[in-house]
């Protein structure tokens, strides 16, 4: 397939050290309550980076900073900067429109949230938002996204039925198709399997590993095994701070911070 050759070229060329998103001194406040404390990390391109930590540690908050979801609610404030390569856009920069940011970042949520529309229209939604109106183009891109989300064979005969009739796991894969249809730079996963059964979960996990061939993946998970199975890099957060960030292998087998070790060995969290 064409995309694969292109992406393998990129990974081969720039190696794993190429940074896709550079987070610098990112702090976040709900009103006066500081939830993120000066987090800095470089998220590598075309890899799966997992955010782990006990609940309330700020991992989901960090994820939602990256596509400015916090702007939907009043009283929230960011500090610091988040640059996206290759063009170096600062998504927290002054005058940066959250809508523009969100068009570059795909997001998949905790629970499947298909729109009350047909399967086809769910996937076409983002494409239409980015100005694609021709039926032929849409058909092609919808099919491509559904294939990449490994759901095409299950839905190709009923593209125009309501998405709500799908099973939970299918809905979530549809939501992944919706998120990747517009070729975002980065896809953010917010505990995408927490509402799913084990079989559906393993399908999603396979899919995420497959996805990194062409997009950068950032995933929040409370499931350590899941982080171990699918991620290349892992960040451990605690009380709003980034405690440790490194390759998953190293972080799980030989953590450098005692808190990380405690968490991974199940002493708290």
């Amino acid at each position: 397939m064409n995309p694969q050759s292109a992406s393998s070229e990129v990974t081969g060329g720039v190696n794993q050290s190429s940074t896709k998103v550079r987070i610098e001194k990112l702090s976040f406040f709900y009103g006066t309550h500081q939830v993120l404390k000066s987090v800095s990390m470089d998220i590598p391109a075309l890899q799966v980076t997992a955010l782990i930590g006990p609940s309330g540690c700020g991992k989901t908050t960090l994820l939602r900073c990256l596509n400015r979801m916090h702007d939907l609610y009043p009283g929230n404030r960011y500090e610091g900067s988040v640059h996206v390569q290759p063009d170096g856009m600062d998504i927290l920069g002054p005058g940066m429109d959250p809508i523009q940011v969100r068009m570059r970042f795909g997001m998949v949520f905790q629970k499947p949230n298909p729109f009350p529309k047909s399967i086809y229209e769910n996937v076409a939604y983002g494409l239409r938002l980015q100005g694609m109106n021709k039926r032929r183009d849409l058909d092609e891109r919808v099919e491509k996204a559904l294939r990449e989300a490994a759901i095409w064979d299950e839905v190709k005969s009923r593209l125009h039925q309501m998405a709500h009739n799908l099973s939970g796991g299918q809905q979530q894969r549809l939501c992944i198709a919706r998120a990747i249809a517009t070729d975002p730079d980065v896809v953010l996963f917010d505990e995408p399997t927490s509402a799913l059964d084990p079989i559906a979960t393993s399908k999603i996990e396979e899919l995420i590993v497959e996805l990194k061939k062409r997009v950068t993946v950032l995933i929040v998970t409370h499931n350590l095994q899941q982080a171990g199975r699918i991620s290349d890099m892992t960040a451990f957060m605690y009380l709003g701070e980034l405690v440790e960030f490194g390759s998953t292998n190293q972080l799980f087998t030989n953590p450098s911070k005692p808190q990380t070790e405690d968490y991974i060995s199940g002493r708290f969290g």
Binding site: L72, R102, M103, M107, F109, C175
Partner: peptide, 8 residues
């Protein structure tokens, strides 16, 4: 949020 995340 699903729709906002797509940039609507």
């Amino acid at each position: 949020e699903g729709a906002f995340a797509l940039g609507d």
